[in-house]
């Protein structure tokens, strides 16, 4: 178990280093930040001076090594735009993004599990058919559009929820639904097909033959087996939500990392881009590790020691 954990942590570290190199190089391909920082009539000597002071005159590989060395100590440099440490800027925004991603994921699971289970139990019924149509509808709606629709209905027409902002639980509801809407369909289908397999298994038939009530067989004995394929994709969806959060954050003026990083890309604020992407990749690696570890809790046959 410990060996497995260490191996997975080492792999995760490697992924994070890889991500940092990619983002470091790509951000420098996006253009010269000096052009945006200095007025266009600035003399070339001044431009060179500033470039030198910011450490951008060095070759890229050298810049990366300097960046990596400092980053290990927690120093991601100062934001060009805000003149503040990039890491603390991003960290300030991080809780809001994580909160949104979790809420979105929770919303999708809360909908997908009962939908998937009931579709499997009542296969071929009107509910199953309705579920399929609903799922298709869900996948055809991009999350910014869902967000706009929600605002239109619940904020403007009904005036039940705040249209934008952050702070109370009421603020969280619509962004979470907008973000969690899309994966509901795919997750429902995963739960449905897993449940169909499990409900057809010998052990469920055996459970019926000894008189266990149907609700117990479905919601306890079958669901736990069907949860494994769902949990597998949750790590991926969590990552997709961290990434997809940018659009929803923009629609709802949610003060998250995604929006900040995208703004930083536009202003070529390299330190903020690097800190934001690196932190997101740490979250991604962590989420997938958690998923892999949770298999062992769900399924006792899974062992990590070899």
């Amino acid at each position: 178990m410990l060996g497995y954990l260490l191996r997975r942590l080492a792999q995760g570290l490697l992924s994070i280093v890889g991500a940092s190199i990619v983002i470091f190089v790509i951000s420098r391909l996006s253009g010269d930040p000096i052009v945006l920082l200095l007025p266009s009539e600035a003399p070339p000597a001044l431009i060179e001076q500033v470039r030198h002071d910011m450490g951008l005159a060095e070759p890229v590989w050298r810049q990366y090594l300097i960046f990596a060395g400092k980053a290990l100590g927690g120093d991601f440099g100062n934001s060009y735009r805000w003149q503040a440490p990039a890491l603390s800027l991003v960290l300030d925004r991080l809780p809001a993004t994580i909160q949104l991603a979790f809420a979105g994921l929770a919303f999708s699971i809360l909908l997908a599990v009962p939908f998937g289970v009931l579709s499997a139990v009542y296969r071929g019924s009107w509910f199953d058919t309705f579920g399929k149509g609903f799922a298709m509808l869900g996948q055809a709606m991009p999350n910014f559009w869902v967000g706009l629709l929600l605002i239109l209905v619940f904020a403007i027409h009904l005036d039940w929820l705040p249209a934008y902002g952050h702070g109370t639980l009421a603020h969280l509801v619509m962004p979470a639904i907008a973000l969690g809407w899309y994966p509901v369909a795919a997750q429902t289908r995963i739960v449905r097909s897993a449940m169909l397999d499990v409900l057809d298994s010998d052990y469920i038939r055996m459970g019926r033959a000894v008189g266990n009530p149907e609700w117990l067989l479905v919601w306890k004995y079958a669901l736990r087996n069907a949860a494994i394929p769902l949990v597998t994709v949750l790590g991926v969806y969590f990552a997709a939500m961290l990434g997809g959060a940018f659009i929803v954050e923009t629609v709802f003026a949610w003060p998250g990392v995604g929006r900040m990083v995208v703004e930083a890309v536009f202003s070529r604020d390299f330190p903020v881009v690097q800190a934001g992407v690196l932190l997101t990749s740490v979250l991604f690696v962590g989420a997938n590790l958690l998923v892999d570890l949770s298999y062992g809790i769900i399924d006792p046959r899974i062992r990590y020691d070899h």
């Binding site: 298994s201 055996m206 004995y221 087996n225």
Partner: peptide, 8 residues
Amino acid sequence: MTSLNPVF
């Protein structure tokens, strides 16, 4: 081999 639920 398949009549018992593997996760309980």
